[in-house]
Amino acid sequence: MIEATLDRSGPQWTLIFIRELTQPPERVWTALTDPGELDQWAPFTAASALSTPGETTLTMVDGDERTDLPAVVHRADRPTLLDYTWGDDRLRWELEPTPDGTRLTLRHTLAQPGIEAMVAAGWHLCTDVLQRLLDGEPTGVIRGKDALDHGWEDLKNAYEKSLSAG
């Protein structure tokens, strides 16, 4: 199950993206914090583990293009909460155990409003790849323009409709 809503109550909008995963929180935590695992599913690479508070660099990857963005891990409460900045955005990952695995909630506070459907489509594809990685069937990371070949445009359009209706 995937669910996405938009909280417009603050000065910055927060995309709330929820995904049910079949692995326990401890396993999901490793995928969210280990640079080697992040490199297999996330839209960025990490210069260091995200499992301890402190500064690091997250590098956006789009083909041969690389864009370094400063990041600060504010909280890393294994295996339930990971909170960090990524450039001007803030990402808060909450991991809740369920009978079937983990309820993963991402609260992505956007520095720039109006891109929430694009961001939701991107996280949708990334967490699809994450689920396959966790299932032991890695498919390879989908980043940047490569997402266009994997249904990103249709997902973006669907999220534009659902997020504007919410």
Rank of each mutant, 00 (worst) to 15 (best):
R8Q: 13
G122Y: 12
T33Y: 02
R107W: 03
S162G: 06
P11E: 11
E160I: 09
G140A: 09
G63S: 06
V73S: 02
A158R: 14
L81P: 10
E26T: 09
G166C: 14
R75V: 14
A31F: 01
T139V: 13
D88T: 04
E26R: 06
L91P: 00
R90F: 05
V129T: 10
L69N: 07
T22M: 03
P53Y: 06
G140Y: 15
L15N: 05
E3H: 13
F44N: 06
T14W: 05
S162T: 15
A42Y: 14
L134W: 11
W86F: 14
P53D: 07
S48V: 08
L6R: 10
T57W: 09
G166Q: 15
S162H: 13
P25V: 00
M1Y: 11
L106I: 04
P99M: 11
L133V: 08
E94I: 13
L110G: 04
L163F: 15
Y84Q: 01
T30H: 05
W13G: 01
L58M: 15
P138W: 15
A76D: 06
R8M: 10
L15A: 05
R78A: 11
T33M: 05
L15C: 10
A117C: 14
L125E: 04
T30Q: 09
H74P: 02
G87S: 07
P113W: 04
A147L: 01
L58R: 05
Y84T: 02
L155T: 09
D88P: 07
H150S: 02
T80L: 05
T139H: 08
L32A: 06
M60E: 10
S48M: 10
R143C: 08
L130E: 03
A158N: 07
Q112A: 08
T56P: 06
L91A: 12
A165L: 12
K156D: 15
G144R: 03
T109Q: 10
A111V: 01
P97Y: 14
A147G: 10
L6F: 15
